[in-house]
Design a protein around this nucleic acid. Structure first.
Length: 400
DNA sequence: ATTCCACAGGAAACAGTGGTCC
DNA sequence: GGACCACTGTTTCCTGTGGAAT
């Protein structure tokens, strides 16, 4: 018997794989052309054209569901503009940040600052007032007469942060040009949520949405073409069966035309087929892939919860279909069992709400007349999955 | 028609941490 | 070293809710 590790390594080295280029099976892999997005590419380019003529373009808002290629298009246009203006020595600075990757407004501004070239000593990662951070950013732009273009991906998330902290940072960003002595600042917002503007200050809406571009979702036919192209480049010839490809497109098409999801599906299906030593990818593999992606998502999300949230989830299992009050009693008992102080009922309600948002549990508001109003929760995923995941947590081992 | 229950969930306050600035 | 700041997680306080019971 050969060594099991060697066996796998030998097989991989011999090039037996049905996948010949894995990189292509990632959404962010940018092909030369972004398919079915010609119109949008033209629109974005038109909007940013003034930069070429050394003028400040209008602030721009880009909308579209996840996986519609918004960010890819914006990044492509920007990098092309950058190529051209580099030659003309026009001092333009493009800065990209995803607000979801920053948990605070402070972090977001610091990320902008770093990309503008502000060092740790000039802009520390904490300790300053937000207004001070903002001032330092503007000083930098003024001093170097930069024409800065800030791209804020998932700007709806930023809008949410702002509504929590009551800071009008977006307003200040959109009106920064009035405060600048040299240089300029342009804001490009990218959003998944078409309705996020409703949460904003009307003054911000008017200056931020000077121009708007909407990315329509892909239809199943378009998804098929996108998949087909990637499959041709990524897999060996005739490996992916047509029904498998069609199923991927149909499934992703059913979920708001998400190309990211479609490409993910075919990648995971390919990996499953390969591990099963199959020479073709069939629709069975695609179905398995759907399930696997779903399970991975659930497990990752379960693992990421802090202890008290995990205890609340366990309490929902113990008191299944029960009201908040009963769940709270079960939770208190669990806390006692693991030797922790229980949090208040108010906090527990809040945690239940947060967990519900992630889709692991679902709640239903019930009016029971004189018995008051309550919310009844139940688990939406399998109990076994939760138990299996939580068993790995040492502090929970005894109560699972 | 009124009362009452068992909470939901918003708002504000607070404590603690980790930092800067002068 | 003290004033100040951002931020997170939590508690405290409070108002609102809709239908059964009275």
């Amino acid at each position: 018997m050969s060594d099991p590790v060697d066996q796998i390594l030998d097989e991989a080295a011999s090039g037996k794989s049905i996948i010949k280029n894995r990189d292509i099976l990632h959404f962010t892999y940018i092909p030369d052309t972004i398919q079915h997005r010609d119109d949008e590419q033209k629109q974005v380019t038109q909007s940013l054209l003034p930069i070429l003529h050394q003028a400040r373009p209008s602030n721009l808002l880009v909308y579209g569901k996840p996986g519609t290629g918004k960010t890819l298009v914006v990044k492509k246009v920007i990098s092309k503009i950058q190529e051209r203006v580099e030659k003309s020595k026009f001092p333009i600075k493009l800065v990209y940040t995803n607000s979801k990757e920053e948990t605070t407004i402070y972090g977001l501004l610091v990320s902008f600052g770093r990309q503008l070239g502000l060092q740790e000593t000039e802009l520390p990662t904490s300790g300053l007032a937000i207004s001070e951070v903002f001032k330092r950013l503007l000083n930098m732009i003024s001093k170097k007469s930069l024409n800065a273009v800030f791209v804020v991906d998932e700007i709806d998330h930023l809008a949410q942060l702002i509504s929590k902290n009551h800071k009008d940072i977006l307003y200040q960003l959109t009106r920064a040009n009035n405060r600048l002595e040299g240089g300029s600042l342009t804001l490009i917002g990218i959003s998944n949520d078409l309705t996020f503007k409703e949460k904003l200050d009307p003054r911000v809406i008017s200056s931020l949405g000077e121009e708007e571009i909407v990315f329509p979702t892909y239809n199943v036919e378009q998804l098929k073409k996108i998949l087909h192209e990637r499959v041709q480049q990524a897999f060996e010839p005739d490996v992916v069966e047509d029904p498998a490809l069609n199923l991927c497109a149909a499934m992703a098409g059913g979920e708001h035309g998400d190309a990211r999801r479609a490409i993910d599906l075919i990648r995971v299906a390919g990996e499953i087929a390969e591990r099963g030593k199959s020479s073709v990818v069939t629709s069975v593999h695609v179905r398995e892939a759907t399930q696997k992606i779903e399970e991975n998502k659930e497990q990752a999300s379960l693992k990421s919860y802090p202890l008290h949230e995990k205890l609340v989830i366990l309490a929902v299992i113990k008191a299944t279909g029960a009201s908040t009050g009963e769940i709270y009693q079960a939770y208190k008992a669990l806390c006692k069992a693991v030797g922790r102080d229980a949090l208040t009922q108010r906090r527990t309600t809040q945690m239940l709400g947060e967990i519900e948002l992630s889709g692991i549990i679902s709640g239903r508001l019930v009016h029971q007349g004189i018995h008051g109003r309550t919310k009844k929760y139940k688990l939406t995923i399998s109990t076994e999955m939760v138990k299996k995941t939580f068993e790995q947590d040492l502090s929970l081992k005894d109560v699972v």
